[in-house]
Amino acid sequence: MNPKSLEALIVDRSFGELSPEATELLDAYLDANPQMQELVSGIEEALSVTEMAVSSRPELFREDVFDRTDDVDFGSKLIAFPGATWLKAAAAFALLAVAGAGGYFAGNRSAVSELSSSFGPAPTSLLSSSTPGPWAQYRIASGGIETSIPTPSTRQEP
């Protein structure tokens, strides 16, 4: 068991914050690991000394030491932040990312189309093979590569 978790459980048990089932499990674990007894007694002593310190020194807890304006508790604010809001923010980012990526690729594709229309026919790999072109077309037939040169009747003027 992680020593920090064990320490936390021992403190919880001392404060009576552990369920009976969890207390039983913890006790069984500590019985099986007698070397942990040192840790247990250390924590119990720390708790007892802290209790004495808190009750004997009220001045440590006076209002003027609680300058709360400079004690911004970022950790708790993050934890307290509603989960639904995080989800909404994540969904909005995802939508933005998808929209951005879509726009980027759409822009690239239209750039290719524009290029092809400006500089003549594009390479066959970029154009749909179903579109009849004025150039020699190649197709793979069962017997090998066939070459067909369009006849004047089939040639389409650009």
């Binding site: 802290t50 004495m52 310190a53 009750s55 807890f61 030491v65």
Partner: peptide, 22 residues
Amino acid sequence: AACEMIDLLPALQREILDLRFN
């Protein structure tokens, strides 16, 4: 020693200690 350490703690932790132990 414990008081010296408590004196170094942030306000929130001190309040928690006070509410718990006192």
